[in-house]
Amino acid sequence: MSTKEQGKEVKPIKHNNLYTTINYAFFHQRLTEPMKDVLCTIGESGEINKQSLITKSGYSKTLVHACTEALYFAGFLSIRTPRRQTVYTLTEEGQMFVDYLVQHATEEVE
């Protein structure tokens, strides 16, 4: 099942114990630069469609697709498909992950 189809019907099940500092560290370990850029682009835009995401991120369609799939799988993105468009936003967990990353980076610098 594609992400598009998943986004239409299925919402990620929220497990409170999944989104903990330990698990964010796990996600952080596996985060790639393109995934981070895609995460930032979506977050900065608030809500963005696939074409604009490809344009703004500067990555290929395939790579953007792979990144959004991964971020969706991690529960950081929500996907809507209004009128033949695929539209991405950050979920609450995605926003918290961003906070974690920013804080984590600051701590590392300090």
């Binding site: 952080h28 370990q29 985060l31 790639t32 630069e33 981070k36 850029d37 995460l39 930032c40 977050g43 961003v98 990353l101 920013v102 984590h104 980076a105 600051t106 590392e108």
Partner: peptide, 8 residues
């Protein structure tokens, strides 16, 4: 700031 975060 997140864009500046260095990944593992």
């Amino acid at each position: 700031r997140l864009r500046d975060v260095k990944l593992h």
